[in-house]
Design a protein around this nucleic acid. Sequence first.
DNA 1: CGTTAGCACTCAACTCGAACGAGTGCTAAC
DNA 2: GTTAGCACTCGTTCGAGTTGAGTGCTAACG
Lengths: 343, 343
Amino acid sequence: MLTERQQMILNAIVDDYIRSAEPVGSRSISKRGDVNYSPATIRNEMADLEELGFLEQPHTSAGRIPSNKGYRYYVDHLTPVHSVKPAEVKELKRFFTEQLSAAEQMMQHAAMVLSHVTNYTSILLGPEVFHTSLRHFQLLPLEDQSAIAIMVTSTGQVENRKIRIPDHVSASELEQTVNLLNSRLIGVPLYKLKTRIFSEISEEMQRHLEHYEEMMTALDGAFGQEQEQKIFLSGATNMLIQPEFRDMDKVKSILDLLEETPTLTRLMTEAAAPQGIQVRIGAENAHEAFENCSLITATYELDGESLGTIGILGPTRMEYGRVIGILNMLSHDMTRILKQWYR
Amino acid sequence: MLTERQQMILNAIVDDYIRSAEPVGSRSISKRGDVNYSPATIRNEMADLEELGFLEQPHTSAGRIPSNKGYRYYVDHLTPVHSVKPAEVKELKRFFTEQLSAAEQMMQHAAMVLSHVTNYTSILLGPEVFHTSLRHFQLLPLEDQSAIAIMVTSTGQVENRKIRIPDHVSASELEQTVNLLNSRLIGVPLYKLKTRIFSEISEEMQRHLEHYEEMMTALDGAFGQEQEQKIFLSGATNMLIQPEFRDMDKVKSILDLLEETPTLTRLMTEAAAPQGIQVRIGAENAHEAFENCSLITATYELDGESLGTIGILGPTRMEYGRVIGILNMLSHDMTRILKQWYR
DNA sequence: CGTTAGCACTCAACTCGAACGAGTGCTAAC
DNA sequence: GTTAGCACTCGTTCGAGTTGAGTGCTAACG
């Protein structure tokens, strides 16, 4: 239906328009490396393409933009080599391997709900030391060579990891391992589990177990818990709703800062009061990107010890009353729930 | 430091400015119900407040806006009655009670990653029937009157629920219950568990167990799995980054539609191809709000049966190649992982 | 005959100045 | 102490004029 050259030109126009979001002129197409015709020739083809319905003209003296039919053709004849950038591949792969702990999942969820309710950006800073220790360890063997390691923490959260059971390990041997681990590891903080197993208990295990080596490598995966201080944020683009940030330029530096975890962590920690709710207005935040922003923070705590920080970031023209009310309620609820967990 | 009246006026100005985002004039303050002075009086006070540094004037003939100092004063003297709207309370409460299944958490996470990588809006439609059945049931009693019910599904996912154990129930009775449930419920689809327990097995349980009634109410919470088709979306405000949606009016209808779950579900189902990747451009979407949008969908499947749909929504001027590449990769990975799960 | 240079034409975007009006500060009267 | 009145300021709006990117057409070229 379309000549080779028409396809080429249509393709170039769609490509250009996707990049620039502005009507594409004949001159700019002609200047591309892959098309070697003068603007006049291109213009003729463009007129034809428009007549065929693949292109549109916003107004007489403007360049062309693709019509829906044009996009359709472009998509249908897209070269099937969709190269995905390495960075993107990395992020997607990470998603599949990432293991969020129960506590982390809760925080991420809380961030989402908060940004959704307030229409501002929410930032949650995890507890520096989550005082969770092991309360119970269990291995549930499945019918094949795998099992599920289940760890109940002192807060009542349940972590589970799939592990592969080495061949030749008998059921009784498994049971022995579980009993041993339970007797020695209960009460040990989660983040110490791994080192504890490999240092203190390994000797004893070696004595009792026949397939010690294999068992250890299998367990290795189950206890791999890094427990560093993580930061969760949600609704970053909610900034764009605010009229004061109508032009991207102003928001750019804020969005950039939000990506920069270390600085953001610093700002949050600085802003947070030892207890209660703290409001940082404009320049009170020690970063120029937040000059037109206010950051409201609340801490949730247990027995007077602060466990984490919740922050809401918005324009200085923020609904302080509402946000403070919500944060108040949330931090109380968090504290209450933590108390329940720890009993 | 400030007179009663100055406080009142400052308060009114901040309130107004937070609402309108526009400089506040003396007239509009005077017309409010709570301030009964003429504009002239207000003007005098405003001039004083400006001199004191609480207000600013963008230019000579404009109204006043609060300075950072003004916000500070406003916040510090905020009436501590922060009423939170019932709807917000409801959503926050729901967050604390909500129990997402492992599969749902995975989907939500996938939606987040996708919208983050693509910078468009991602929509995930859950599987209509997730063919998961029970593979193993376990009760882990904690030292107090509670226990954790753990269900391993046929896909290897682990669901856990905290339940309260009725008084007077002995350890042996618990064990009996677990054994009974395991022998009768393995292989039963998760969404049928509850009815199965209450219809077919209840009789048998009644025969064997002393504290039947209490046990049943306790178990009730553990198996409450609704498993309806859920929809997850993330990055809705990413739309705002696109220059074609620079003014809110155009986006409004789209954002509204995204909130409207049933319609969105319909659009996604219509758009989805039985397999592979499908592109809906502009008006091809059967909804006028999507006139300037394109929806790219991919399905992930198992043994030829489609299990769910992934969608990316962006402007018609979308980076089709890139998004298709990413979706391709992701849907393949999803399919591969599902195969692993089901073995 | 396909391609290209040249040129007249179109029309959104920008510029400038005038008119408008929201809002102020000041003064005088209540 | 409060308020009405009024001159003044200055961003916003609107229309006319200008600019320039881009087109369509015609004629010349290889």
